[in-house]
Design a protein around this nucleic acid. Structure first.
Lengths: 144, 144
DNA sequence: TTGCAACTTGGAATCGTTCTTACTAAAGTG
DNA sequence: CACTTTAGTAAGAACGATTCCAAGTTGCAA
């Protein structure tokens, strides 16, 4: 495998989607981005090198990626209402800084109970997935 | 203590806020509501018995309650964009049904590590709070 | 190379929420 | 009890994020 962007593009194609210049640009922009950007942020960045890029295309492509399981969509709190996109498809959690709003991935420790015994049942509720958000202060914000 | 609504009203007053008829109506409407309603849903319900009620007042009151720690605000997923309000101030988690979108409270089991050793440190991140969302299918949806 | 379903664009529409303005009611002051 | 200050409300405009739409364009299978 070459890199994350190329592998995502290959998967997109495999799913029957066309590899347009716009999609290629979008995928390259986010594939290795660990900051969990919003669609708006991506759009701004893309517009500098791809001036005709439209909002709808950014959203469409990100949703297509999400639909293929190549991208996560995050709603990280009632205050930051914009959806954030996460190219990390490993099982993991998130830490959100109350100070600056930054988001970092938290890998699942190998010694903890694998996020959840999948399809466990909780009060008549069939649990398929568990999401955790740790809130607090990032290194930088807890100093200042 | 009489009931949840009265105790919330007392706390509101103690916080220096006036007990207006609007606030009393809003608090009574949500105090014992376990469905995590949106501001819109509450507004619709209130409007039937309090026709002059305005959106701004609903939001103001819910935010005031949240500011006093009497109400939680939830962003439960990228698909349901509306903020949901939760009068349950106990430490607990949430289970969200992929089918119907319903939300139920999940109490923290006494045998699990108290949500998190408070202020634990994670990769240089000072953790103050942990939120968990279990996703899957509710009893009703997993049958049909 | 061609044909067409899939795609892109730009702007309008929508949704949930916040803001603004003017009005009203309550609480403090003398 | 009049007077002032302050807090709260109503209605709708404004806002930010996202989705929809109509019209034009293009990747790619055959």
């Amino acid at each position: 495998m070459k890199n994350r962007a190329d592998s995502m593009l290959a998967d997109l194609k495999r799913a029957g989607l066309k590899l347009t210049p716009q999609r290629i640009a979008i995928v390259r922009e986010i594939a290795d981005d660990l900051t969990h950007p919003t669609a708006q942020a991506l759009f701004e960045r893309l517009r500098t090198t791809f001036p005709t890029m439209s909002f709808a295309t950014v959203y469409n492509t990100l949703d297509a990626l999400a639909g293929c399981g190549l991208m996560g969509k995050l709603a990280l709190g009632p205050d930051s209402r914009a959806v954030r996109f996460d190219p990390n498809t490993e099982v993991h959690h998130h830490a959100v800084c109350d100070g600056c709003g930054s988001v970092v991935d938290i890998p699942v420790e190998t010694d903890e109970p694998a996020v959840l015994p999948l399809a466990a049942t909780l009060k008549g509720f069939r649990v398929l997935r568990e999401e955790r958000t740790y809130r607090g202060l990032c290194d930088r914000c807890s100093r200042s």
